[in-house]
């Protein structure tokens, strides 16, 4: 398997932005979304997220599987949440317009709980669409400097770069270990025995992977010390500057955040909004 980071959005409009833009926008957006429960506003936010996502030009074929997985899992999560809450919508004090009651569980399915589930799903999707570009449209070697310039200390920012450095090589080593054990007649993927036995069955792969990486780290540590790592202020080869577009993008998400936060206090957009159509349908 190839574990190298996949820079699928390379060259796109969003990928050409300063990487800090993608990270800051995501967090501004997430902090905005979590306050909003009005489906009409959430729909608008979905649109914003969609336009933003499209600007990263991530090829559909490259992330199809990922999206399918996310959608499936989120749908499941929302459904289970609906069942467990017994159809009760948090912070909602009004009446429920019930369609029917689920047999056995006795959960009432109402216009309100359906709206709540739908809105919940839409919020998740918006956040996911905003998150994907960070994963696929930032050059792998730009993360360290991006976090550095966002105020993360030098050493931690470098640790992030180092993470990208180790990812492919440790993945290879792990494959070698798994291979070496297969040659000895051991396959961790084989399902046999009880749970604890199977857990122990993974140690021939897990243990050498961990221990070898740690033993090998001695040389890496020496190599870093010998080149003066962490002994004082450091510079970074890569340079980041916001251009006007970058500032506009961040400005947009900042204004959106401030505006909706304000509206959240003075209007009802932090409460669910149930479409009249659903209420009518339920009462028919």
């Amino acid at each position: 398997m190839n574990f190298a980071p996949r820079y699928l959005g390379r060259g796109s409009w969003l990928a050409r932005r300063d990487p800090r833009v993608l990270i800051v926008s995501l967090f501004l957006f997430v902090f905005t979304v979590v306050q909003i429960w009005d489906a009409r506003v959430v729909l608008l936010l979905d649109l914003v997220a969609l336009v933003y996502y499209r600007s990263a030009a991530i090829p559909w074929a490259g992330v199809r599987r990922q999206w399918a997985f996310v959608v499936l899992f989120l749908t499941l999560l929302v459904l289970i949440n609906t069942l467990i809450t017994g159809g009760v919508v948090p912070n909602y004090t009004g009446d429920y317009d019930v369609f029917f009651t689920l047999p056995i569980l006795g959960t009432p399915i109402s216009a309100q709980s359906l709206t709540y589930a739908g809105t919940q799903l839409m919020r998740f999707m918006a956040m996911t669409a905003m998150g994907f570009p960070v994963a696929y449209a930032v050059a792998p070697d730009a993360f360290g400097i991006a976090f550095r310039r966002l105020g993360v200390p030098d050493k931690f920012a470098f640790a992030i770069d180092l993470t990208f450095r180790f990812l492919p090589s440790l993945a290879n080593d792990m494959q070698t270990t798994a291979d070496a054990q297969r040659v000895r007649g051991h396959d961790w993927q084989e399902a046999k025995g009880g749970l604890i036995t199977r857990l122990r069955n993974t140690t021939p792969v897990v243990v050498p992977s961990v221990i070898n990486a740690l033993v090998g780290a001695e040389d890496t540590i020496d190599a870093m010390d010998l080149r003066g790592f962490g002994t004082g202020r450091r510079t970074w080869l890569k340079h980041l500057v916001y251009d006007r577009t970058d500032k506009l993008v961040i400005g947009f998400f900042l204004v959106q955040f401030l505006l909706l936060t304000y509206l959240g206090f003075v209007t009802d957009i932090s409460q669910i909004w149930v479409p009249q159509l659903l209420i009518d349908l339920a009462n028919r």
Partner: peptide
Amino acid sequence: VTSRVVVYSAIGAVLYGLLLVI
């Protein structure tokens, strides 16, 4: 935060992330 801490951090993160496939 020594070089050791930085290297072990990166290694820990990578190993954890990769081994999550199991």
